[in-house]
Amino acid sequence: MQNEECHNYDPKWDNAMDEEMAALDANATWELVALLEDKKAIGCKWVYKVKHNADGSVNRYKARLVAKGYAQTYGIDYEKTYSLVAKMTTVRAIIAMAATKGWSLHQMDVKNVFLHGDL
């Protein structure tokens, strides 16, 4: 379900969007300012997703606000990018070591991961 038109008619998406907006507000993600002359603001849009449980039942409705990053210009809107993708070899090496030495192997998951970064 990635349809922008129908969300207004379905209260479940409203709740999901309220939740996301609350998270963004709590995080102080932005402040409202007047746009500088001759500048254009980049757009944003809502992306809707239904999260399912392992048995296929609906877990929750999730709405996420995404910026249209493709409209950004290098040098003006951003300078450095980096994708933090771990090498699979590293992951396997770590697991091999945990197995051999009998160490514990734990996992954590960050909520709203990209909202933590400062610009």
Binding site: T29, W30, Q72, Y82
Partner: peptide
């Protein structure tokens, strides 16, 4: 954002202080 436009100041824009999904620099910021 759509359907959350500030009614009193519809012409203002958001100046981002924190990263947001979709921004080019978001992964690095994190």
């Amino acid at each position: 954002p759509l359907s959350y436009v500030d009614q009193t100041h519809p012409n203002l824009v958001c100046r981002l202080k924190k990263a947001l999904y979709g921004l080019k620099q978001a992964p690095k910021a994190w």
